[in-house]
Amino acid sequence: MIGYFLLFLENISPLKFYMEKLTDKFIWKSLKEGDLKAFSVLFESYYPQLHDYGLKISKNEALTEDTLQDFFLYIYDHRENLSDLETIAPYLFTSYKRFLLKVMKKNAKLKHTDFSDEVLIDLKFTPEELLTNQETESFKNKNLANLLNKLPKRQKEAVYLKYYSGLKAKEISEVMGINYQSVVNTLHKAINSLKEEISIIKLFKL
């Protein structure tokens, strides 16, 4: 009977229902009122993205998962003090980044290494992550990954948030603490230099 019960719940899944029907604003508001269900919706929608983001920054799965648990617990504990939000994504990305960096810095201090946020946020891309276009073989993917990794750190972060996490330019500007125009410029610079590099490689191949 209990098995059946769970099965049935999965079919109608109240959570999915909420997710489709509710806006960020309402989820946030209910979380502030202590609604655990709203919180689980928030968790389920953002955990995957934040997990990958954390992993990209820390390159350490255990650390990412531990900090995510602590981070969400922190949010729940401090829900009453949270300010009202229209969109949740930028807030979560920004706060989680800060949260993770704090822990990483603390760990680094224990090992007597010294570094700043700028050093810490150095994303690395692998050829496997890139989607192959019809005409490009894995060789070209490897090249593109190399090129991406050569970009300045800020550009890499913007590229990641835009094309991997799927944030809007406006949201990226909040996460990275720069204005909208800078995001667009940074992204464009990144894409342009990739294009140039690719055409140079093409020339040499010919």
Partner: peptide, 14 residues
């Protein structure tokens, strides 16, 4: 157009 096309990632979420 460049920005919209951007770079395509294989999204490998948990």
């Amino acid at each position: 157009k460049d920005l919209v096309l951007g770079i395509s990632f294989k999204k490998n979420f948990v």
